[in-house]
Simulated assay, not measured.
Amino acid sequence: MMRDIAELGADFSTSITVNPDRLKILDKVRTIDTDWLCILSPQPQVLPRYLVITRTLSADVWIFLLVTITVWGVCLWGLQRAESRLSGRRSESFGESICYGWAAIVDHPPNPPSNLSGQVLVGWLLIGTLLISSCFKSSLVANLTVENKEKPIDSYEGLVKKVNWKWGVEKFFLTGAPLLYFSQNPDPVIQFIYNHTESMVGDLGLEKVRGGRYSFLSTFNRISYFLGVLYSDTFGRHPFYVSKSRYRISSDIGLGIRKGAPFLRRFSQLVHRLAEAGILSHWIKDVLQGRISEDRKLYRQKMKEGNVASTEGTSNAAFAQSLEDEREVVLKMEHFLGLYLVFLCGLGMAMITFLVELYFAFRHLGK
């Protein structure tokens, strides 16, 4: 097209990327709205149900509770020891003081200490454990009512953080002017994506995404076309997730007019009016929906004739699985597997403690 304009064989070019060399033969370029780059990934899966008990609180909250209760138990033991030396009364052992805090968290605290300082310390602990216990129970109910899913891939950063994950880019993005967006971008995240990406056409990219643990980068309208024609059922359901974040590849894509074209002023005014009235964006959506509808009918006709394989079953199966995940949750054994793991860990720690006690007991008897 640029050669035709340079040789005066054409007056007008649509959707070109501006650079200094092209501006030598183009009299004016009006920037137009370009399609946005987005990330297509598989639908987020439900998190393992056996972690529902530990997932009610975040990891830092669990660590905070462990450290706080341990420090509180040490403080209670120290106060009891100091009071015992002054009054001569028996004080709780170190183990009893530590277990007191954990018993208070599960709403079964033992009798409070006899000294006033210990009672004050226990009183403040009971206030804190009341709040913690209420938060834990409400969070547990919420997690059992609506099960959590994996965090969807909504940005470049979320894509590169995925473990054992691959991605590909639409083939034409790695050629010509769009290649500069990836190859010369100063953002290290985009550079990492570019260095580890695969190049392929759109329908092949969607097939790899459907296989799992794969994402595909393409323009939103192009992805919408493939989803509407190949993978969506009559209700528009499909087994994919389209990122909410959209990225502009280039802001210098526009309409090119050769130098000295007599219709430049009138043409620019007309395009400006259409853009400000919102007609251009409406035309794009209308044309896209019409193309999807026509090609969808053609694709279904080919499926009936047996010329192409059907992909609709996959979308229906994925939607059925999403309904299965979102319906009312019935408690199963897998929900309590995390609790059993906690019991096993406690049993293991008790056995280790018992062996340590046996070691010191035999050592004492040997002396």
Rank of each mutant, 00 (worst) to 15 (best):
R3M: 15
I5L: 14
I5N: 01
E7Y: 09
E7D: 15
G9V: 09
A10W: 03
D11G: 12
S13V: 13
D21P: 00
I25S: 12
D27L: 09
R30I: 12
D33T: 09
D33P: 00
L37N: 07
P42A: 06
P42S: 09
P44D: 08
P44Q: 08
L47T: 05
Y50I: 00
V52K: 05
I53S: 07
T54P: 00
R55E: 12
D60W: 10
W62H: 05
I63R: 15
L65I: 15
V67D: 13
W72E: 08
G73D: 07
V74H: 08
V74D: 08
W77R: 04
L79E: 13
S84I: 05
R85L: 12
G88M: 05
R89H: 13
R90W: 03
E92F: 03
E96V: 00
Y100K: 06
G101N: 10
A103Q: 13
I105C: 12
L116D: 14
G128P: 01
K137W: 11
L140E: 09
A142C: 13
N143Y: 05
T145V: 02
N148M: 10
K149I: 05
E150W: 06
I153S: 09
V163W: 01
W165H: 11
W167P: 02
V169T: 13
K171Q: 03
F172D: 02
G176Q: 03
P178F: 08
L180E: 08
F182E: 06
S183Q: 12
Q191P: 06
N195E: 14
T197A: 11
V201R: 09
V201E: 14
V201Q: 09
G202H: 01
D203C: 00
L206I: 04
E207V: 03
K208P: 01
S215Y: 12
F226G: 03
F226D: 02
L227F: 04
V229K: 01
V229L: 00
T234A: 14
R237Q: 03
H238K: 02
V242M: 15
R246S: 11
Y247C: 11
S251L: 09
D252S: 15
I253Q: 08
K259G: 11
P262Q: 02
L264W: 00
R266N: 08
R266W: 03
S268K: 09
Q269C: 10
Q269E: 14
L270N: 13
H272P: 00
L274P: 02
I279Q: 10
L280S: 08
I284F: 04
V287E: 00
V287C: 04
L288K: 01
Q289K: 11
R291C: 02
I292N: 01
R300F: 10
Q301L: 12
Q301S: 12
K302T: 05
K304N: 09
E305C: 05
E305M: 12
N316S: 14
A317R: 12
A318K: 01
A318F: 01
A320T: 12
E324P: 00
D325Y: 04
V329A: 02
L331F: 15
E334M: 05
E334A: 02
L337R: 07
L341M: 10
V342P: 00
G346P: 00
G348P: 01
M351A: 14
I352A: 13
L355W: 11
F362C: 13
H364K: 15
K367F: 13
